[in-house]
Design a protein around this nucleic acid. Structure first.
Length: 213
DNA sequence: AACTCGGGGCA
DNA sequence: TGCCCAGAGTT
């Protein structure tokens, strides 16, 4: 992706979503880590619905580590994939206590080694939690990146991250990530994109809806 | 690279 | 009813 098109995208996103931000409710980095981990394959709305009571019932890392697995599973059931997530959450809290003095580690390597934490969760924690440059690729970002031509259709998630990061200036990754997300969620939806209003239609590789000028 | 986990919202 | 959702781990 060349500079001119990249700037056109970033300018448009800034116009549409000047206040794009992480919508997962959290009071600290640990809660952010938990919320992002739980958000896999579900919506942030549902995660917020669960975490609202979850962080009252389990206010500390210790309380998660000592939690009854069965209770924990029931507490997060409505988000789906709850067995694995509850198991990983408890194990993660135990690892944080045993290996990291109850703190959330700040390096990519350490974060990614935690149970239930992969590339995407790591990048969100780094960027939102620690203000470190990182660009997380989820399903929205992947779709948008391919539609706008930052990546090719059959590129893997890692390919997409590499290519987008190469196109966008490092100091804009964090904000741009959330703008990609907002664009994907509210504007350029997977099934029902707003092609008629879209200023980026010319460069779109998908053109799901026909637009005449 | 493909497969599995999964309840709830929505058409 | 069937489809899909801010992914990660295993094979």
């Amino acid at each position: 992706m060349n500079k001119e098109k990249t700037n056109k995208v970033l300018d448009y996103f800034e116009e549409l979503f000047p206040d794009a931000h992480c919508e997962l409710n959290h009071q600290n980095v640990f809660e952010l880590l938990v919320a992002v981990m739980l958000s896999a394959q579900t919506t942030d709305k549902k995660v917020n619905q669960v975490t609202a009571s979850l962080f009252k019932k389990y206010p500390t890392v210790e309380s998660f580590a000592l939690a009854s697995l069965e209770d924990l599973q029931n507490d997060i059931k409505i988000i789906g994939l709850y067995r694995n997530k509850a198991k990983n959450l408890k194990k993660m809290a135990q690892v944080l206590l045993e290996e990291y003095n109850g703190e959330v580690p700040k390096t990519r390597k350490e974060l990614e080694s935690l149970p239930g934490v992969g590339r995407k969760t790591t990048n969100v924690v780094l960027s939102v939690g620690f203000d470190e440059p990182a660009f997380a690729v989820d399903t929205h970002v992947e779709r948008i990146s391919k539609r706008l031509g930052f990546a090719k259709k059959d590129d893997t998630v890692n390919d997409v991250e590499r290519k987008v990061c190469r196109s966008i200036p490092r100091d804009r990754w964090n904000k741009a990530h959330h703008q990609f997300i907002f664009f994907g969620r509210y504007f350029c939806k997977a099934q029902n994109p707003n092609c008629k209003e879209c200023h980026l239609y010319d460069m779109c590789k998908d053109k799901i809806k026909e637009v005449r000028k």
